[in-house]
Amino acid sequence: MTLTLTVPPGAKVRVRITNENGETTEIEVEPGETVTITLPAGSTVRVEVEVVDPDGRKRTETFTLKP
């Protein structure tokens, strides 16, 4: 399973991925970048995406991906 994120110009994104064992991976994606994350097959993962807009506003979306 893959997750692809494209960050709009001016925004910053931090992604936290937590697996079933509670292990967390965190990455930051710079403005204008596209990143593809390969998620472990057969695992349920929690993905938290934090977006910081150019004006400093933050918003966070959290979702769970199941196999």
Results as ranks from 00 to 15, higher is better:
M1C: 15
M1N: 04
M1V: 07
M1H: 09
M1S: 04
T2L: 05
T2Y: 11
L3T: 04
L3Q: 02
L3V: 09
T4E: 05
T4W: 10
T4R: 07
T4L: 09
T4D: 07
T4H: 13
T4G: 07
T4Y: 11
L5F: 10
L5G: 07
L5V: 07
L5S: 03
L5N: 04
L5D: 02
L5R: 03
L5K: 01
T6C: 15
T6K: 06
T6G: 14
T6V: 05
T6Q: 12
V7E: 13
V7S: 01
V7I: 10
V7Q: 04
V7F: 15
V7A: 01
P8M: 12
P8G: 14
P8F: 10
P8S: 12
P8L: 12
P8R: 10
P8Q: 11
P8Y: 13
P8V: 15
P8H: 13
P9G: 07
P9S: 06
P9K: 08
P9R: 08
P9C: 07
P9A: 08
P9M: 06
P9H: 09
G10K: 11
G10Q: 10
G10A: 12
G10R: 07
A11W: 07
A11M: 01
A11Y: 03
A11N: 03
A11F: 02
A11L: 00
K12C: 08
K12M: 09
K12Y: 08
K12N: 12
K12W: 05
K12L: 06
K12D: 14
K12P: 03
K12V: 09
V13L: 02
V13N: 01
V13R: 00
V13F: 02
V13W: 02
R14Q: 12
R14A: 13
R14G: 12
R14L: 12
R14M: 13
V15E: 00
V15L: 07
V15M: 09
V15G: 03
V15K: 01
V15H: 01
R16K: 05
R16E: 05
R16T: 04
R16H: 05
R16S: 05
R16D: 06
R16N: 04
I17N: 09
I17Q: 08
I17F: 13
I17W: 13
I17V: 10
I17M: 11
T18Q: 09
T18I: 14
T18L: 09
T18Y: 12
T18M: 06
T18V: 11
T18K: 03
N19D: 07
N19W: 13
N19Y: 12
N19F: 10
N19I: 14
N19C: 13
N19K: 08
N19L: 08
E20P: 04
E20F: 06
E20M: 04
E20T: 03
E20N: 05
N21Q: 11
N21G: 09
N21M: 08
N21V: 08
G22S: 08
G22N: 13
G22I: 09
G22A: 07
G22L: 06
G22C: 15
G22Y: 08
E23P: 09
E23K: 06
E23M: 07
E23G: 09
E23F: 07
E23H: 06
E23C: 12
T24S: 04
T24E: 08
T24L: 05
T24G: 11
T24W: 05
T24R: 07
T25E: 08
T25H: 06
T25M: 11
T25I: 10
T25F: 12
T25V: 13
T25S: 06
E26M: 04
E26R: 08
E26S: 05
E26A: 06
E26I: 03
E26N: 06
E26G: 07
E26W: 05
E26D: 04
I27P: 15
I27Q: 10
I27K: 09
I27C: 11
I27F: 10
I27L: 08
I27A: 12
E28Q: 10
E28L: 02
E28F: 03
E28C: 06
V29A: 04
V29L: 06
V29K: 10
V29Y: 09
V29Q: 14
V29M: 13
E30F: 07
E30A: 06
E30I: 14
E30Y: 04
E30T: 13
E30M: 05
E30D: 04
E30W: 03
E30K: 09
P31H: 06
P31I: 15
P31K: 12
P31R: 12
P31A: 06
P31N: 11
G32H: 11
G32P: 12
G32N: 13
G32I: 15
G32Q: 14
G32Y: 12
G32T: 13
E33P: 12
E33Q: 07
E33L: 09
E33F: 13
E33C: 14
E33I: 10
T34Q: 10
T34G: 11
T34N: 12
T34K: 13
T34I: 13
T34L: 14
T34F: 13
T34V: 14
T34A: 11
V35E: 02
V35F: 09
V35L: 07
V35M: 08
V35S: 08
V35C: 05
V35Y: 13
V35W: 13
T36G: 08
T36S: 07
T36K: 07
T36D: 08
T36C: 15
T36M: 11
I37T: 12
I37E: 10
I37K: 10
I37S: 11
I37A: 12
I37G: 05
T38F: 12
L39T: 07
L39H: 04
P40V: 14
P40K: 12
P40S: 10
P40Q: 11
P40D: 10
P40A: 08
A41R: 10
A41Q: 07
A41F: 13
A41S: 11
A41H: 07
A41Y: 13
A41I: 13
A41M: 09
A41D: 08
G42P: 10
G42Y: 10
G42I: 13
G42W: 14
S43A: 13
S43W: 04
S43M: 14
S43V: 11
S43F: 10
S43K: 14
T44W: 14
T44F: 13
T44L: 09
V45C: 07
V45Q: 07
V45L: 13
V45K: 03
V45M: 03
V45R: 05
R46S: 04
R46E: 06
R46L: 11
R46C: 05
V47A: 02
V47L: 02
V47S: 00
V47M: 01
V47E: 00
V47D: 00
V47K: 00
V47F: 01
E48D: 07
E48C: 04
E48L: 02
E48H: 02
E48K: 02
E48Q: 05
E48G: 01
E48I: 03
E48P: 00
V49D: 00
V49F: 03
V49Q: 00
V49T: 01
V49A: 01
V49R: 01
E50F: 01
E50C: 04
E50T: 10
E50D: 04
E50Y: 01
E50I: 04
E50K: 01
V51Y: 13
V51G: 00
V51C: 05
V51I: 12
V52E: 14
V52I: 09
V52W: 08
V52F: 02
V52N: 01
V52K: 02
V52D: 01
D53Y: 15
D53T: 10
D53K: 00
D53P: 00
D53C: 15
D53F: 15
D53L: 14
P54W: 06
P54F: 10
P54L: 06
P54M: 05
P54V: 06
P54N: 04
D55P: 00
D55R: 00
D55G: 01
D55L: 01
D55A: 02
D55E: 02
D55H: 02
D55S: 03
D55K: 00
D55Q: 02
D55M: 01
D55Y: 03
D55I: 00
G56I: 00
G56C: 01
G56Y: 00
G56A: 00
G56S: 00
R57P: 00
R57V: 10
R57A: 03
R57C: 09
R57K: 07
R57H: 04
K58N: 01
K58E: 01
K58Y: 02
K58A: 03
K58W: 02
K58M: 04
K58C: 07
K58I: 14
R59I: 09
R59M: 03
R59C: 15
R59F: 11
R59D: 01
R59S: 04
T60C: 13
T60M: 03
T60P: 00
T60H: 01
T60V: 11
E61F: 15
E61S: 04
E61V: 15
E61R: 04
E61Y: 15
E61K: 03
E61P: 01
T62Y: 12
T62K: 02
T62H: 05
T62W: 10
T62I: 13
T62L: 03
T62E: 06
T62R: 01
F63A: 02
F63I: 14
F63V: 12
F63Y: 06
F63L: 11
T64D: 12
T64G: 00
T64N: 04
T64R: 00
T64L: 12
T64S: 02
T64A: 01
T64P: 03
L65P: 01
L65D: 00
L65Y: 14
L65R: 00
L65G: 00
K66S: 15
K66L: 14
K66H: 14
K66Y: 15
K66P: 15
K66F: 15
K66R: 03
P67W: 15
P67Q: 09
P67S: 07
P67L: 15
P67K: 01
P67V: 15
P67C: 15
P67F: 15
